[in-house]
Structures are given as structure tokens and as C-alpha cells.
Design a protein around this nucleic acid. Structure first.
Length: 111
DNA sequence: AGGGTGACGGGCC
DNA sequence: GGGCCCGCCACCC
């Protein structure tokens, strides 16, 4: 398990996103200690084990949009999950100013 | 061990 | 606002 420390770090960061809030891939990557590597966050989420309780749906891109194809089942599921938490979509996007999770200044990485 | 890939982001037009 | 391009680097053949 030492191999994919990147995945683990990303997942740990995602777990910290509170219900009803969202975070961007870049934000998660930075929190996980992988600044400048948003792609890594996406890559890790694409491999999220179903067994773990990771709120992968709370991660969207910097444009406030869901990163998956609007047509895909994944997109619909993510959107539904978010709406169930009270996150509203306007023109297919989330208002980051309002729903973006802002970790209190120096919150530790540890869970 | 080398090269392609990606649930991104920021800069630029 | 939208579209293209390039950088980034852990992963997976």
C-alpha cells in the first residue's frame, strides 16, 4: 500500500470536504500535498474504491462544473448526490463562491 | 525502463 | 463567456 501514497493522500483530503460543500481538483491536490497537480486528483478519484466512504461527488473542476460527460451515468449520479446535499446547479454549474469549501487556514492534513 | 494518458488548471486569444 | 494549448507527474502498460 506504500506504492500509491498519492491516491491515499488525495482520498484523505476528499474525505474532509464537509457535506453540502464542494472542492476543486486543484484544491484537493494542494491539500494532499500535490500542488500544481490537479490531474493527479482526478486520476485518484477515477480509481476510488467503492468500498471506501469517499465523497468523490464533492469534487468538481475549477469552472464549477462536473468533470464527467453530461451524458454519462456518473454525471447524473454526481449531480443528484450534490443536489441532495443542497448544492444547486445553475446552467449546469455550481456557484463556487457560494459552495466552495474553504478549509480553516491551517487545518492539518491528518484526519 | 520508457512512453502514453488523464474525473485539471491557467494563460492567451 | 468559450476554445485551444501546454505544463504537470503518478500510474499503467
Amino acid at each position: 500500500m506504500t506504492a500509491n501514497r498519492a491516491y491515499t493522500a488525495i482520498w484523505a483530503a476528499v474525505k474532509k470536504i464537509p457535506r453540502g460543500k464542494v472542492a476543486t481538483y486543484g484544491q484537493i491536490a494542494t491539500l494532499a500535498g500535490y500542488a500544481k497537480q490537479p490531474r493527479l486528483a482526478g486520476y485518484a478519484l477515477a480509481h476510488t474504491p467503492a468500498s471506501e466512504k469517499i465523497a468523490w461527488h464533492r469534487v468538481i473542476n475549477a469552472q464549477g462544473k462536473i468533470a464527467l460527460p453530461p451524458r454519462s451515468a456518473g454525471y447524473r449520479q454526481q449531480r443528484t448526490l450534490l443536489e441532495n446535499e443542497g448544492v444547486t446547479f445553475i446552467a449546469g454549474r455550481v456557484d463556487l463562491k457560494r459552495y466552495r469549501w474553504q478549509p480553516c487556514n491551517d487545518s492539518p492534513l491528518l484526519d
